[in-house]
């Protein structure tokens, strides 16, 4: 059986709007029939615009939210019914919540977690040494959590989520507030744990490098629906339909008027022309441009993952990014 098995998962919230006699109950479907399975040993990115239902899903997977419908199984447990048993097998990090004990030195939180998860002392020492070295915790291990910087705290939170060697890690924005070097360290740590002991990770991140470097598979959620489940390359093809033709003209010109495309930027004689894969192609576009103005040079820019994901976050996967598979 898959480590995570989700079938037709639903979560509805009842929201009351208005006041007095005009109050009405509105049912909001935060998660509306999601099905997927995650095999042990994979790193899966879970992305979508704010409010798409990402956190709601993760809360149902960890047992802190009871589904309105559908079935969930994580590590063989039904999370909402066997939350405490499941807790020992999973690690969770919520980006914007503090799980460490605020008033205590960082090391005290770790020591307490050792007892909570019954990690043998020797094992705990090894794990803390490994995580401490990988995330450079040494300088602030004895500092109270309330005095840590965001980046230091996030590294502490990640350590706290991994000390008991969970089978699966749920990470919400694991690199938020970290500098470039620390981000890279976090990624290396996750990849290493994945490689060496088959750690499974489900992560949400606004950092596209995280997604690109870590995730072999991506789930895109929008308006409570799973709108994409697959690899990175296919995602680019599917959502990154807009390519850009960069043309160098003989001399500066006002933005060219070409059918099926639009000029998005002009810099002297250079113009950036964006076009949809479905509406025209690079050859036809080049011919059109050449007919309008003498061409000196041209290059074609493929959409990169950053554009794709930024568009998904900004506009919603079913918005202007095109296809609607949710219907």
């Amino acid at each position: 059986m898959a480590l995570v098995d989700v079938q037709d998962l639903r979560k509805e919230f009842v929201v009351r709007r208005g006041s007095g006699l005009r109050r009405e109950r509105v049912v909001v479907r935060a998660v509306d029939g999601i099905t997927f399975a995650i095999e042990s040993g994979s790193i899966v990115g879970y992305i979508g615009p704010n409010g798409a239902g990402k956190s709601t899903t993760v809360k149902m997977l960890t047992g802190i939210l009871v589904p309105s419908g559908g079935r969930v199984s994580v590590a063989g447990f039904v999370p909402s019914k066997q939350r405490t048993k499941l807790a020992a097998r999973i690690g969770v990090m919520f980006g914007q919540r503090v799980q460490l004990w605020w008033d205590l030195p960082l090391i005290e939180s770790f020591e307490l977690l050792r007892h909570i998860y019954r990690v043998p002392a020797e094992r705990f020492r090894q794990n803390l040494d490994m995580l401490g070295a990988a995330l450079e915790l040494g300088p602030f291990l004895r500092t109270p959590v309330r005095q840590l910087s965001l980046g230091q705290r996030i590294r502490g939170e990640l350590t706290a989520a991994m000390l008991h060697e969970p089978d699966i890690l749920f990470l919400d924005e694991p690199t938020i507030g970290l500098d470039v070097v620390a981000r890279q360290r976090v990624r290396e740590l996750l990849l290493r744990a994945n490689r060496e002991r088959g750690l499974t990770v489900l992560l949400t991140s606004h950092d596209l490098v995280d997604i690109e470097r870590l995730c072999s598979r991506i789930l895109v959620i929008d308006h409570g629906h799973l709108v994409y489940d697959g690899g990175l390359e296919t995602l680019k093809e599917r959502y990154g339909t807009e390519r850009v033709l960069v043309v160098d003209l003989e001399e500066p010109r006002p933005p060219l008027d070409v059918e099926g495309a639009r000029v998005i930027k002009v810099d002297g004689p250079r113009q950036w022309i964006a076009f949809e894969r479905e509406r025209t192609n690079a050859a036809r576009l080049t011919a059109q441009v050449a007919a309008l103005a003498p061409l000196r040079d041209l290059t074609l820019q493929e959409p990169d993952i950053e554009d794709v994901v930024r568009r998904i976050y900004a506009e919603g996967a079913t918005g202007s990014a095109g296809r609607s598979s949710t219907a």
Binding site: K59, T62, I64, A87, F94, R97, Q99
Partner: peptide, 13 residues
């Protein structure tokens, strides 16, 4: 505040 969520993911009541 919802911070109770972080208490609920621990294997302790």
């Amino acid at each position: 505040t919802g911070d109770i969520a972080t208490d609920l993911i621990r294997p302790v009541h």
